[in-house]
Write a protein that binds this DNA or RNA. Structure first.
Lengths: 358, 358
DNA sequence: GTGTTCTATGACACCGATGTCATGACATCG
DNA sequence: CGATGTCATGACATCGGTGTCATAGAACAC
């Protein structure tokens, strides 16, 4: 590969002048500049980031570590939307003239030290630490030696983090359901004690409270288990229980669950949305758009979170954090309304007739 | 950050000796070695890959460019499984003590030159060029200056590539259907003239031929359009047409389409799999496992393709390609059989009774 | 005892950028 | 006309590793 010396020789100038042409940090005669540019083009010159890094002590690299945390089991399908996080972060990072170095542990936590070692060898300027679902983490001390932003997770040390606004999004979804005339809103939750579960149930309740509707506790049932292999073992029973409470719409903890509920409802001869509306969470387009009817869902805004996290990290690195910038940032997204939710005349109760059919 | 000089000073040796301890390329006295190791640990020393790269002229970086090609429109959900490609490639590349540098264009082709420039600045040793669906590409000349392996695509110049075995996988799926007693197998295809469409239809036909079954052309209908926004506009009609040919199973071009077909069949009151079996393609676990009933599907083996491509690229880089290694490699995967396909008694035709029901 | 080989180590240059400082050619000012 | 300043450029050192070569001492052969 051509070096700056080759270019200098070809253009009949010193390497330093070539450097000046590239970086524009000092005046260069127009004729000289042209000669240098021609030489660069002729030799197909590309500057070496290794040499630059050495001289400048700045690598221009940002490390992202994903799929990082679970050691007990592999998440088969978590990880998929991470590509959106990567895209969102990369866009922002490219604009700052830096490069994103992605290390995916593939869910094997034991690989993390190796990946971090690689990051350190490359002198990454900061790290984006991505969890596969909204949760609390405790960072290894070895991660604390450079700027870091947590994505989709938080810790007890108030490390800067970017989180989805689970409470707000679920609120928006349930509030939207109420505005569409629904009063009896079933909710099949995530596994208990998950951060997202608690937050979303809180949003569900706040939406009821703000609209002056009392929550029938029979309408709220745990719909999933933490184990991925038996994740939906209790869904059948949970669905039976909420149906007993005679809802007009079933909110599912995520789109996967909603997809299953579609099947289960149809097994029971319940048509969607005529006899029962359904809503999801995550807005996985792959699912929500292609289910029939299209699934209304609260978006998990991964791309925006990636962008926001990258932005925050870059500001920390450059020391230009905003004065009152909070450590913890919530990212919101609008609800995607599709055909699975039917608008009801608030004064009409179709419940009794529907129940007769099934 | 501590440098090799700091370590040398702390251990009372020369930098070169520290280097020897790290690389083990020359004998070092046991006592000296221990002293150096202690100094490295005490100073939390991590060697600088930039300095190494400069001296050795080897970056240890492999570039992967994804989501790279489409310029006309953004693929909303293509790109998702790419994470598997990344994981598969990364595993192999890590084992070779190299680092994967992923650049995702987010479907914006105009960003590719920038990304390639970054790759060149980092002196990547080779490039994995990933297409978002199986297709022919023509590479920009600027990509030809270093080893490259195409993934999920091929070109006219016989550039080394790794492809999914569409023909073989569709053959295996259809052959499996026939072995399960199906004789009238409908096929809703991808958009016409797509590489994968032609290959899969070929597999479908070969499976019939090998089993001595004539293909009823009414059973084969185009099920999707190239436009993503109107991708499935003709699915309704296509489904109607194949149903007229009285199939016992409907093969869909991909899992998304199968998900829609689930909905459409149920609208028609056709139960799956009792009245109609359904099969997909891609084996997107997120869909196939959570549809109800579970969807039988031919796997698109992204992780394996990523690993194979990385392996091939590393062998090209190291000059250890196998003697008879073909430029083009096909990656196969077994069919994932789930409940959406019902085994039939080959001698019983339930068609007439089923048609009456609907 | 001298020559040869091996072990263990260090001095020094080099990879390719760029920061610092110096210098020469002009232009401007008093 | 000499002092000062600006413009354009180059010499040189430096970043942190490692390849090359030199060297001192120990071990071994004859």
């Amino acid at each position: 590969m051509a070096t700056i010396y080759d270019v200098a020789k070809a253009a009949g100038v010193s390497p330093k002048t070539v450097s000046r042409v590239m970086n524009g940090d000092a005046p260069v005669n127009q004729a000289t500049r042209e000669a240098v540019k021609q030489a660069m083009a002729a030799l197909n010159y590309v500057p070496s980031s290794a040499a630059r890094t050495m001289r400048s002590q700045r690598s221009g690299l940002i490390g992202m570590i994903t799929g990082a945390i679970s050691s007990t089991h592999h998440f088969e399908d978590a990880g998929l939307p991470e590509i959106y996080l990567v895209q969102g972060a990369q866009r922002v990072i490219d604009q700052s003239n830096r490069t994103l170095l992605v290390a995916d542990s593939g869910g094997q936590a034991e690989r993390i030290p190796t990946l971090l070692q690689t990051f350190r060898e490359h002198r990454v300027e900061g790290i984006l630490y991505v969890a596969e679902y909204h949760r609390e983490v405790s960072l290894p001390a070895s991660l604390r030696d450079r700027p870091i932003v947590l994505v989709n997770c938080f810790d007890a040390q108030e490390t800067p983090c970017v989180l989805p606004d689970d409470e707000g999004a679920q609120y928006a979804l349930v509030d939207g359901l109420i505005r569409r005339g629904h009063q009896r809103i079933a909710y099949l939750t995530l596994p208990e004690h998950y951060v997202a579960c608690d937050l979303r149930v809180a949003g569900y309740r706040r939406a009821h409270r703000d609209n002056g509707i009392a929550v029938d506790e029979g309408l709220v049932q745990v719909g999933a288990l933490p184990s991925t292999t038996h994740e939906f073992d209790l869904l059948w029973d949970a669905l039976d229980r909420v149906l007993k409470a005679e809802p007009t719409v079933i909110c599912c903890a995520n789109d996967k669950m909603a997809m299953r509920v579609y099947g289960l409802l149809r097994d029971r001869g319940v048509s969607i949305p005529q006899q029962m509306s359904v809503a999801g969470y995550d807005d996985y387009r792959m699912i929500a758009e292609h289910l029939h009817p299209g699934l209304s869902s609260a978006e998990l805004p991964y791309a925006a979170m990636g962008a926001r996290a990258a932005d925050k990290l870059l500001r920390i690195i450059s020391g230009t954090t905003k004065p009152n910038e909070p450590n913890r940032e919530l990212v919101s997204a609008p609800v995607a309304w599709r055909e699975s939710v039917q608008t009801r005349d608030a004064n009409v109760t179709q419940l009794s007739s529907r129940r007769k059919e099934t």
